[in-house]
Computed example of a mutant assay.
Amino acid sequence: MKFHNAHLAYCTNIHPAESWEETLHALKTHTLAVRDKVLTPDSPSGYAIGLRLSARAASELLEESNLSDFKAWLEKENCYVFTINGFPYGDFHGTRVKEKVFQPDWTTDERLDYTIQLFEIIAQLVPKGIDGSVSTLPGSHKTFHADEAAIFTNLERCAVKIEELSQQYDRDLHLGLEPEPLGHFENTEESLAFFDRFLATVDDPEMVKRRIGINYDTCHFALEFDDCKKSLDALINAGLRISKVHLSSALEFDPQSDEAMESIRNFDEPTYFHQVILLDNNRGLTRHPDLPDFFADLEQSNSSHPDAIAGRIHFHIPLYSEPEAPLKSTQDHAVDALKYLAENPNFCSHFEIETYTWGVLPDDLQIPIEDQIALEYEWVSNQ
């Protein structure tokens, strides 16, 4: 749906689906129900879908008449697709995801081929006059010790293909690399340094900057204790494209509060990575790969990090929802991103609500999924 000068959707990675049949079923069952809650049937702009396609679903969508049938369904339902989440390659629900969501990474042909398939799809789905985006992982995960030269090679190959498809279909297509805690690059400083190194290796830096930029996730940058305005200013001033903004919030807690430390145990679940980052009074950061690692460190050191003044956990919680005290959220970072849009209406045209952890939220934060998503739309509109 139109949102100021931009487009707003929610990411359908919140719905478990790995095949194309399952994906289409989720769209018909859940996404249309959300549409009916947030959009009038005769809205001239139509209802925007932020599509998530696994590698299997993408391959199946390109078979036989599936893509043309899907385009006809979108038109019938007054819907359109402007962005695809291409970060999770495979299973994303109901199994241990954690580091697997970074596999295969950008050192591999599998990741390149999958992403090109997504661009072949979005090039044919996105309406004329609207740009089309795909979001992906930040190259790799730090623990993989990836060959950065291989990442650069595959990203450049991808940029060349995106350029070809953009010209072939007369669409402005772009890829957004999504910094994440413990990703190959994870914050503003590391993002700038990564692109400096990457662009120094390519034949056509201007073309690459046109086709590859940053997917700015407000949860992830808040986790790093980066200031939203300063971060976006720095990325844009460096000539980087903000391909898409993910609107999402993380958990915040007081590491000196016994009650808060006990409360965060409710968010320790085995499906996703829940990195923990602590801020000390000298603005230094201490990182833990996951909540279990954080608790194990406390037990081994018998320390509560006496210099820590704030802690944040990579656990996406609904935008409209502040957890019960003593916990807090990083909602302010999402608010600041929307304020930035009001002051800089052309900095990015793609916005996506992304609270994919609905299925593993503690019971006190759960409501019917369509109601949750509708409330997130309402929250964004109210900002």
Rank of each mutant, 00 (worst) to 15 (best):
E322Q: 08
N281H: 10
L338V: 06
H316V: 09
H350C: 13
Q331R: 13
L319A: 02
S303Q: 13
A308H: 02
D297P: 02
C348L: 13
C348K: 03
R283P: 01
D307P: 04
Y356L: 11
I277R: 14
E354K: 07
N344Q: 12
H350L: 13
A334H: 00
I353T: 09
W358P: 06
Q300D: 14
S301T: 15
D332E: 02
F351M: 05
D280R: 01
P289L: 14
A310C: 02
R287Y: 15
W358V: 05
E322N: 07
A334G: 07
A310G: 00
L327E: 01
Y356S: 04
H305R: 14
V335R: 12
G284W: 07
D297W: 01
I353Q: 08
N302R: 14
S329I: 04
G359L: 09
I309S: 09
G284L: 09
P362G: 10
A296S: 08
E352A: 12
A337P: 00
I317D: 04
L361V: 07
S321R: 11
D293C: 14
H350K: 05
A310D: 08
Y356G: 05
F351V: 06
L361D: 09
N281W: 01
I317V: 15
E352H: 07
F351K: 03
E322L: 04
I353F: 12
T330S: 10
E324R: 11
S321G: 06
S301N: 14
N302G: 15
R283Q: 15
D336E: 13
F295C: 07
N282E: 09
V335Q: 09
F347W: 03
P289E: 15
Q300S: 06
C348T: 05
A308Y: 01
V360Q: 15
I277S: 06
E354S: 08
K339P: 00
G359D: 12
N302M: 14
H288M: 15
V360P: 10
S301R: 13
S304G: 05
D293S: 12
T286L: 10
N282P: 07
S329D: 00
D290P: 11
G359T: 07
V360G: 11
R287D: 13
E354A: 09
L285Y: 03
A342T: 02
N346F: 11
A308E: 00
N282K: 14
V335Y: 05
V335S: 09
I313K: 05
S303D: 15
L327Q: 05
L285R: 15
V360K: 00
E343M: 05
D290N: 04
V335I: 06
A310Y: 06
P345W: 11
A342H: 07
E324N: 10
H288K: 10
S349N: 08
T286R: 05
D280S: 09
L285A: 08
H314S: 04
L319S: 02
W358S: 08
D336L: 07
P362L: 06
H333T: 08
D290Y: 14
D293V: 11
L279T: 02
I353E: 10
H316W: 01
P292T: 05
L319Y: 06
F347I: 00
D307H: 13
G284T: 07
A334Q: 01
A342C: 01
Q331M: 12
H350Y: 08
G359S: 12
L285W: 11
